[in-house]
Design a binder for these strands. Structure first.
Lengths: 356, 356
DNA sequence: TGAAAAACCGAAAACGTATTCGGTTTCCGT
DNA sequence: ACGGAAACCGAATACGTTTTCGGTTTTTCA
């Protein structure tokens, strides 16, 4: 019953030392451990000859300082925590996974590895913050999560540098698309195709959701076109089933919209399914727009009309900002970084039907 | 110039101790550090009363042993390395990312975090194995990589437990789909639709590639239908552009195939693009099959005919196997685990054209 | 009641590294 | 040649754990 035994691997345990330590290196150099350490860390009080000697033999022996020992000593690990908590599919999320990929690349380029943050370790539960402290990450990126959860709030207001994506917490750094610009362009484009009955399916709560909806409504207002309450439907991001249900509501209206702006591309698939099920054609009978610009869908027919978010730039900016926050906390300020998005006029938004 | 300074964060450094240590816990309990440690680790020589006391105050103070210190001492980190190295898109890979997601979930369920393995740390290059030793991972899963690379071979033949996915190294554990069964079913299905001129676009080298091709050829042979050399084209997995080029070759043949089996779903998109560019209809003029069964494509029209690989089962099995290899090296043997795959008859394979 | 055995606890060493501080040596200017 | 300053090196300590081992108390049994 002693759970301790489960922790001890039985195999080649202390058999052969896997990695070469600084002690062996110092022995090989005929120097003390401290001098070797100083040589490797560019201390001034070591002659250039011995520094060279140490460097050379270190290379030769393939010495790497143990990340564990180093981290323990200096209090940081060169690990960035990533909170990526989505119930649907996790890493397969087709908008957030490219963001994460870019984040990871940039982090690695800057010498950081990434570590996923969960709220359990094996069977024992722990909060996100606990996990971060347990693993000693140097900072956290919150990529995709329920931002209202108390655990997330605890993490954000904790002691570690934090960068969020697509949701701004007051006084903290955030990276997001220029949602206002994106939604405005999309709406104008749809208007330019002659649509007046435009419905809008909203994603679940996040600060970007509000920005997009506001931009849509204002653009409509500027065009002098009203949007009835019934044209605004609540739904969930990245959830085709929910979008399908929302779309059904819209199709059941006495005066059906001629165009629907979906919460995102993936949701749009569900919406389009509902439309097809009603025997309607896209875009001849009804137009559909998405949001995100997932590349895979741009290779399918009909090509979705959407707003492409620059996932590469978002992830990269997040990593860069987080590293700055970690390495120069004094001179780095909190900010919200907006990266431009781009309208992709695809095949799913056509001219408004004439009879409508 | 001293690069050392870059490593020291200037901020709240030793200001407030972020996490509570065992020393503070022992003080709070009025016990020695050693006793506390033993109480937490279920040592027999500590009374149940003190054990209870320690446990209680530990919970109360929110104590977690530092992963760093613990790892340093016991020689393992409860981290699983993941080698996920694909030039195209990394984490966004639409077949491997669900595998990774399942792997991650199962690993976390068993108390392991995952760590990505690269061949550089910041600017300084290092081999995969070096990275593993540097971070002290307990084992490695090689998910997607050029298996011929010397670095990968070095890693596989290194001291750590290894599980590969979709490529078997002799004497090591591997998880893959039942490719033989999958390809056989697909081929039979295509044959049942009346096709005789079936072309095959091959992926780049891996052991599964061979198995699939062999299964295809044997099934064709069993049906008594020959496959000309020109119907077998070399291409690259997960690369629409390469598939497009390969498809062009096939379409240029004097006797064009009536069905093409693509190396995978994503590649199929490229192939279908080529076909459409030639003004041909799918599946009326020419049929197309993919492999993998990526869920997103099953929501698009036309629904791709393909073989679904059970990514969840694959990832889970890999994690389980790797953890077994780590925790019970004596009693766990190396093996290749095959998980069943499933034919999805979609809309892209139709009856063979009559005139053909 | 006494001695052996069991039960329980703490001091100390170790894991691999970074850093402070005191101690040699070398160098320079006079 | 001499004093002092620079230049260079190593012993020691600490980071937060685990684990061995010796020591004290309590229990048990003849």
């Amino acid at each position: 019953m002693s759970s301790r035994n489960r922790f001890r691997p039985e195999g080649k345990c202390g058999a052969s030392p896997l990695a070469v330590t600084i002690k062996e290196l110092s022995a090989a150099c005929g120097l003390s451990v401290s001098t070797v350490s100083k040589a490797l860390n560019d201390y001034p009080d070591v002659s250039s000859e011995t520094r060279a000697l140490v460097r050379a033999t270190a290379d030769q022996l393939g010495y790497r300082p143990s990340a564990l020992a180093r981290g323990l000593k200096i209090g940081r690990t060169f690990n960035l925590g990533v909170l990526f908590d989505t119930e649907d599919g996790g890493l397969t999320h087709n908008y957030f996974s490219p963001v994460l990929e870019a984040f990871k690349s940039e982090a690695e380029r800057r010498g950081y590895d990434i570590a996923f943050i969960t709220h359990h370790l094996g069977s024992s539960p722990m909060t996100y913050l606990e996990h971060c402290l347990y693993r000693n990450v140097d900072g956290v990126c919150i990529v995709c999560s329920k931002f209202e959860e108390p655990e997330v709030v605890e993490l954000v207001s904790g002691p570690l540098p934090v960068v969020t994506i697509d949701h701004v917490f007051h006084g903290h750094s955030c990276v997001e698309s220029e949602n206002r610009q994106g939604m405005t362009e999309l709406t104008r484009y749809i208007l330019s195709m002659g649509h007046t009955r435009i419905a809008y399916i909203e994603g679940n709560s996040a600060s970007v959701t509000t920005v997009r909806l506001t931009s849509f409504l204002r653009t409509m207002q500027e065009a002098g076109i009203g949007v009835p309450e019934s044209y605004l439907v609540q739904s969930i991001y990245h959830n085709p089933a929910a979008a399908r249900a929302a779309t059904e509501k819209l199709l059941a209206l006495p005066e059906r919209p001629t165009c629907i702006i979906m919460s995102d591309d993936y949701a749009a698939l569900g919406g389009m399914e509902a439309i097809r099920a009603h025997g309607l054609r896209i875009p001849e009978d009804i137009s559909v727009a998405g949001y995100d610009g997932v590349p895979l869908l741009q290779m399918c027919r009909p090509r979705l009309t959407t707003v492409a978010q620059d996932t590469a730039a978002i992830g990269e900016a997040a990593a860069r900002k987080l590293v700055h926050l970690i390495e120069q906390p004094r001179t780095t300020f909190q900010e919200t970084i907006s990266v431009p998005s781009r309208l992709i006029p695809g095949e799913t938004v056509g001219p408004a039907p004439v009879g409508a």
